[in-house]
Amino acid sequence: MTDRPAGWRMPRPKQMEKMASHVGRNAPPTPVLGPNDDLPAEYWQALLDDPRAESRPGPSLPALRLSQLPQHILRVSCRRCSRVVEIQKADAARLYGRDARWKNVGQKLLDNTCQVRTGRYEEDGCWPQFE
């Protein structure tokens, strides 16, 4: 069963050539961007207007060092197995150093107790989500 209306038939080759010659005539020319060209302002504004865009400036939570984190209890969960690991900031600083990045510490905490092992390096381990 087709979605064509009753009485529809394929255009003849001459009709197709005529239709093809009209394609793109009335369309405004769009500049082609190269790899080194700046993106248009509309693109950046659309990104900023997106509700998922972070409103707070500065580095993200995983990129901060332990000494820069504001919270007392640090929590990291696995997006794969839903396991949650919590540690006090003082204990994490004592074990890994004050200048350790929270991303690295959280990954180590999850890896030390990971229960999802397939035997393949690419698939093993947990997928951290920092809270």
Rank of each mutant, 00 (worst) to 15 (best):
D99E: 00
E131T: 11
S21W: 00
S60H: 02
E123F: 05
G106K: 00
R101Q: 12
N36V: 11
L74M: 04
D99Q: 01
Q71G: 05
V76F: 09
P40H: 02
R25A: 15
P128S: 00
G119W: 04
E42Q: 14
R101W: 05
R75A: 11
K14M: 03
A6W: 07
P59C: 02
Y96N: 09
R80L: 10
R52N: 13
N104E: 11
T118C: 12
E86G: 07
A53Y: 13
P59I: 02
N112P: 05
E17Y: 11
E17M: 11
E17F: 13
R83G: 01
D3P: 07
G106T: 01
Q107S: 06
S55D: 12
P57M: 02
R94V: 08
M16E: 13
W8D: 12
K89W: 07
P57C: 02
K89A: 14
L66V: 02
G119C: 05
G58I: 03
L47N: 01
W127N: 10
C126N: 10
A41V: 08
D124M: 09
L95S: 13
A92G: 03
A100V: 05
M1D: 09
N26D: 14
L109D: 00
R83L: 03
D111E: 07
K89F: 08
R4P: 08
W44C: 02
P35Y: 02
P29W: 06
I87A: 09
P59D: 02
L69G: 05
P11N: 13
G125F: 00
G97Q: 05
E123I: 03
T118S: 15
D99N: 01
S67F: 07
H72Y: 08
P51C: 00
E131A: 13
L95Y: 09
D124C: 09
V23M: 04
E86R: 10
I87Q: 05
P11S: 12
E54R: 15
N112A: 15
S77D: 14
D124L: 10
L95R: 15
E86A: 06
D124A: 11
E123V: 04
L64D: 01
P31K: 12
E131C: 11
A6C: 06
V32G: 06
R12K: 14
W44I: 03
K89G: 08
K108G: 03
L110M: 03
C114A: 12
Q88S: 14
Q15G: 08
A20F: 13
R12V: 09
D37Q: 01
Y121D: 15
R117D: 00
Q45Y: 05
V105Q: 04
C126R: 13
P59Y: 01
W102T: 04
R12W: 07
D99I: 00
H72S: 13
G34W: 07
G58V: 02
Y43D: 07
Q68T: 06
